[in-house]
């Protein structure tokens, strides 16, 4: 009986992405691969676009405590409760302006905004100091593709970062962390 030739299985797409990464390693390799894993998850499971890895702060130019990501979600990720009230009023006005007989649904228009993403592993321990270091490095709005940092809008006066916590089974939980006491959304 002929011995079947042993073909090694194809590496997983995340694995190939991590091993094909040729960018300069500014941090521990584990932190780089963590960022890539989150990037992969956002891109292919949540349809985020223009994802970038940031190793240096756009504000100070110094090294981040770990590589961070920025990207554009398909829908607006966070709407401040006060902005939501304003958007709803606007949508209500627009609906009233429309003619009778047309569809009467409220159309809330909120353009997606670029977000900062902080990759982390569930097994890690964090402290307030380290969280504050991350927040001190990030700008209110992540820089555009060309490195330009845009002016923060009226409703984005608080720095926010999406904490992406990944477990060993590669489940990722996303939580929005804001710098300061910000009242909750009333979904």
């Amino acid at each position: 009986m002929a011995r079947a030739e042993v073909v090694p299985p194809q590496p997983a797409p995340v694995q190939s992405l991590i091993s094909s990464d040729t960018s300069r390693k500014t941090h521990d390799a584990a932190l780089h691969s963590l960022a890539l894993q989150i990037q992969h998850n956002l891109q292919y499971q949540h349809y985020w676009t223009s994802l970038r890895i940031h190793t240096h702060s756009p504000l100070t130019g110094g090294l981040f405590p770990r590589p961070l990501l920025s990207g554009l979600p398909p829908h607006r990720l966070y709407i401040h409760p006060d902005e939501q009230i304003e958007l709803l009023k606007e949508a209500d006005r627009a609906r009233k302006a429309r003619k009778e007989g047309e569809t009467g649904a409220l159309e809330v228009k909120a353009e997606p905004e670029r977000e900062w993403i902080l990759p982390a592993r569930l097994s890690e321990k964090w402290t307030l100091r380290r969280l504050a270091e991350v927040f001190d490095g990030v700008s209110q709005v992540p820089p555009e593709e060309d490195g330009r940092v845009e002016e923060a809008g009226k409703w984005r006066q608080t720095k926010r970062v999406v904490l992406a916590t990944v477990d060993t089974d590669s489940t990722v939980a996303y939580y929005i962390i804001q710098d300061g006491v910000v009242k909750p959304r009333q979904n």
Binding site: L163, Y175, I176, I177, Q178
Partner: peptide, 11 residues
């Protein structure tokens, strides 16, 4: 004092 507010991102 520095505080951080945390909410689910809904992803």
């Amino acid at each position: 004092v520095r505080a951080f507010s945390i909410e689910w991102a809904g992803l």
